[in-house]
Amino acid sequence: MSTETNESQSRPASRPAGAVVPWPEQRRDLPPMTGDEQLVERTWTEIDAWTYAFLWHCVVSF
């Protein structure tokens, strides 16, 4: 997040239900994979799911 202004991070048409920053987008932002990519993908997807849950439960549950 910017420290000066809060700028929109729009990712139309590439953000499926359950994801805020989908793995393919995060993958592009990482250095070359030298280890187990599936392990990184799984753990990234799990934590991203919590972010998604936070946003959508603010709408649906609270």
Binding site: N6, Q9, A13, V20
Partner: peptide
């Protein structure tokens, strides 16, 4: 319609919660 999750993050959450700042506002 175009990006529901992005709309929540950038517009709806800052508008419904006074501690959150919206697009383009000083952080």
């Amino acid at each position: 319609i175009e990006d529901p999750t992005g709309y929540l993050l950038n517009v709806w959450m800052p508008r419904t919660n006074r501690y959150l700042v919206g697009d383009g506002e000083p952080n």
